[in-house]
Amino acid sequence: MKKTTLPILTMILSGCALSGCSGSLVARMTNVGDPPDMSQTQNPTLMDGYRPVSMPMPYPEPELTNVNSLWQTGSRAFFKDQRANRVGDVITVLVDLNDKSKIDSNNTYNRNASHVSNVTNFLGFESKFSAIFPKAVNPANLTNTGSNSQDTGRGLLDRKDILELKIGATIIQVLPNGNLVIQGRQEILFETELRIVEVRGIIRREDIASNNTVPYEKISEARIAYGGRGDVSDVSSVPWGQQTLNRILPW
């Protein structure tokens, strides 16, 4: 970063501090002229917000063993199963998402209502209304009501999502029924744009292929995120000031 930009950057950061800018904005401003910083590799169970997974479990069943047999139930190899099955083992998740959806709705709502009551007095208090209201009160029209409402709405959604990638995930928990909780994160830096891929969920041991891979559709409670930060993300995203107005303004 050039030295001539330091005073300008200092003024911007000071203005942000006085106006209550978010910490993420200040962090982004400090990286002006430099690519985004990559995060350190760390234990997923020590990350902020991590909670052990708790799912309904079946009753425990006794393990069945075959006398004089070296074969392991569910094994793909004769002597040893090479697939991931313990905490810390790595498995490859195959994501091949090609989703297309289209929704077109058109709604029209009309309602007319009228109610006329035959009440001719209001417990004798109608004579006192002239002191409050500018015109004389007609007792025959004390409770007459009417309403007329109309609403027309049109909605159109046409979207297509394509995501193809492979990501390594780590087993971070083994549930009592043998299912595996996995979580993986990858960061790829392209010049000034940092791409981040995250995946987590629950898989069965039986769904792990012999090459130690599992397709994303076999992941229960799957959470797959693909995003990033950098110059491209800044240009394509809505400015934070406009985002604030979108959440505050009622119209």
Rank of each mutant, 00 (worst) to 15 (best):
E221Q: 08
I203N: 09
Q186I: 07
R195Q: 08
P215T: 14
A225L: 12
I203P: 04
P215F: 10
K218E: 11
V174E: 11
G230P: 05
R223V: 15
L175F: 04
R195F: 13
S220H: 07
G184L: 05
A222K: 00
E191H: 13
E206N: 15
V181M: 07
V199I: 15
R200N: 01
L194D: 13
R204N: 09
E206A: 15
V214W: 01
G228R: 00
L175Y: 02
S220L: 04
I224F: 10
I196G: 10
N179C: 01
S220C: 04
R229F: 03
T192Q: 06
S220F: 03
I219F: 09
E193T: 14
G227E: 06
A222L: 07
Q183A: 10
I224A: 14
R185V: 11
Y216R: 01
A209C: 11
L189T: 00
T192C: 09
G228E: 02
S220E: 01
R204V: 02
E193A: 15
S210G: 12
E198I: 03
T192M: 02
E206I: 04
E193C: 11
G201Y: 02
V174M: 09
A209E: 12
N211I: 09
G227W: 00
D207Q: 13
Y226R: 06
V214Q: 00
I182W: 09
Y216P: 07
A225C: 08
N211W: 06
S210T: 07
E221M: 14
R204E: 10
I182S: 06
G184N: 02
I208F: 10
R200H: 00
G228H: 03
S220W: 04
I208G: 09
D207Y: 09
V181N: 02
E187C: 02
I219S: 03
E191L: 13
N179L: 05
I208V: 12
N211T: 11
N212H: 05
I182M: 09
K218M: 14
R205C: 10
I208K: 06
E206L: 12
R200W: 04
N211M: 03
V197T: 01
N177K: 05
G201A: 12
Y226E: 12
I219E: 04
R223I: 15
A209Q: 08
R195N: 10
R185A: 08
I182A: 11
L180Y: 05
A209G: 15
V174K: 02
N179G: 01
L189H: 06
G178T: 02
Y226V: 15
L180A: 11
P176Y: 01
R205A: 15
Y226T: 08
I203Q: 11
E221N: 15
I219D: 06
I219A: 07
V181L: 05
G178E: 04
G178W: 03
R185D: 13
T192V: 04
V197I: 04
I182G: 08
P176W: 06
P176N: 07
L180Q: 15
E217G: 14
